[in-house]
Simulated assay, not measured.
Amino acid sequence: MAARIPRKIAIMSQEFNIQPNIGTALRTFLHSQYFRTPPYPTHSFANQTVIVTGSNIGLGFEAARHFYRLNCAKLILAVRTVSKGETAKEDIVRSVKHRTDGFEAIEVWPLDLSSTQSTVSFAERVKSDLSRVDIVVENAGINSTTWQVVEGFEHVIQVNVINTLLLALCLLPKLNETKSKYPESTPHLEIVSSEMHRYTKFPQVNSPDIYQQLNDKSAYDGTDRYNVSKLIEVLFVRELVDRLRATSTSGPPPVVLTLVNPGLCRSNLDHHMNVVAQWLLYGFRLAVGRSTEVGSRTLVYGACAGPESHGEFMSDGQNQRVEPWIYTETGKEVQRKVFEQTMRVLDGRRSKGVKPEWGVDLGSY
C-alpha cells in the first residue's frame, strides 16, 4: 500500500513536520508593507568598495545608486548582461549630481549565477583586481514556476541557493582580508532574502537527499520553489554564522553577515514566470508593494548594520525574528541538515574544473 502513496505526500510524514504560522506571517507582512517605511539612508560609505549583484534593474540598481550617492569609493555592478549594466551605470552617474567621478568609480563586471564557472571567475577577479572589498550585496535572484534544469540542478535552486552561497563563501576570505588590512572597516556580506521563507512546509527536507528531491521533476511545485529557496538561504546563513562563531575568538565578528528582507516591491522579479502568473502578481504588487527605491533602502541598512545584526534577518532596517519553528530543536536539526547537504553540493563543484576555496573553518560536514 505504501508504494502507492505519491512521493510528495509520503515524505511529509517522515522525520520533520514543519507547520508555518501563515496567519502571523501575513500580519507581520502587511504591517510592514502598510505601516513601516525604511528611512532614507544617510550613512557614509566613503573609502569603501561595494559590490552589488543583479544591479542593472530593480532593487539592486536602486541600492547601487544609494551607495554611489553615499560616497563609496568604488562600486562594482555585477550583472548578467554588461551592456545593460553600462546603461544602469550611465543612469546612476547622471542622477547623482554631487559626484563627477562616476565613470572611474563605477565598474560593470559580468556575473551569471546560473553558471558555476561565471560565479567562480567573478570571485577570482574580485580577489585579484580589488585591493579591498568592504560590502557584498548578493541581490541577484529569480522567481519562476517553470521547470528548468541548469548544470544538473533546478534553475531557481541553482541561482538563488547554490551559486549565491558559492559566491558568498568564495568572497568571504577577501572580506576577512579587508578587515585585516583596514581595521577601521567593518566588512559586510549581505544575502537578500525574503518573507516568503515563512510560507513553506519544506517537504524536501524529509528526503535523505534534499537536493535530489529538489531535482525530481515529478515532485516539483513551482508555486513553492521560490519560498523553499529563500528558506534554505536563511537556514544556511544561520548555521554558517553559528559555525564561524564557534571557531573565532571573542569580540565583534570580522565580517558581519546579514539576511535582508526588502519587502514586496514593484519590481520585475517575476519575469521568469508564465504570463498569467506575472499578471496576477503584478496586480498584487501594485496594490501592496512598495517602490524598488524604498525596498532598496533595506539593502543599504543591511550593509552598514552593527555586529548585533550578525546572522540576523533584517526587515525595514531592523532585526526581525525568522519563522518561529526555526528556533526550536526541530529547526536546529533542519538547519544542520540543510547546511551539511548544501556544503556537500558546493564542495562537489570543486571537481568541475573550478577550485573554490572557502578560506574559513566550517567544521565537519
Rank of each mutant, 00 (worst) to 15 (best):
S115F: 05
A63T: 02
G289A: 02
T247Y: 03
N21M: 01
D221E: 15
V133R: 11
S193I: 00
A64V: 04
P187Y: 14
Y40E: 11
D129N: 09
L214I: 02
I51K: 02
F35N: 00
V96K: 04
D221S: 13
V334N: 10
N163V: 08
R350H: 11
E329F: 04
A246R: 07
K352F: 13
R266W: 12
M343Y: 03
M314F: 10
V149L: 09
Y211A: 09
H271P: 01
T28I: 14
T100L: 09
A73C: 01
N21S: 02
H188C: 12
M314C: 08
K201E: 13
I210V: 10
E107G: 09
H98Q: 15
E151K: 00
N160Y: 08
G141E: 04
D216P: 00
V133N: 11
W325P: 03
D361S: 10
Y226V: 01
L75A: 12
V149H: 03
S144H: 07
Q318T: 05
H66R: 06
R245A: 15
Y40I: 00
E138R: 05
S180M: 07
G302Q: 02
E312W: 00
H188E: 12
I5D: 00
L264W: 13
F103P: 05
G222S: 04
F202R: 01
R350F: 10
R36E: 12
G251D: 11
K230V: 04
R344V: 14
V228I: 15
K127W: 08
L257Y: 13
N274D: 15
F103D: 15
V133H: 12
W147C: 03
E233H: 04
Q48I: 02
W147K: 01
N261I: 00
Y226F: 13
T330K: 05
Q335R: 15
M273T: 06
V338F: 12
E138C: 07
L269V: 10
S44C: 04
E190W: 00
V150I: 14
I232G: 03
N160C: 10
A10I: 02
V255W: 05
S309E: 03
R69T: 14
L346A: 04
K179R: 15
S128N: 15
N21L: 02
P253R: 07
E154I: 09
V126R: 08
W147S: 01
Q341W: 01
V133F: 13
G289V: 01
Y327T: 03
F45A: 05
E151P: 03
K74R: 15
R336H: 11
I5K: 00
R225L: 14
T24N: 06
P262S: 06
N17Y: 09
I135S: 11
V82Y: 05
K89V: 09
R36M: 08
L30G: 12
P203L: 10
F35G: 00
K332R: 10
I92V: 07
Q213M: 15
L26H: 10
P183Y: 13
G102S: 03
V192L: 08
G331A: 04
G251R: 08
A46P: 00
L130G: 14
A219S: 13
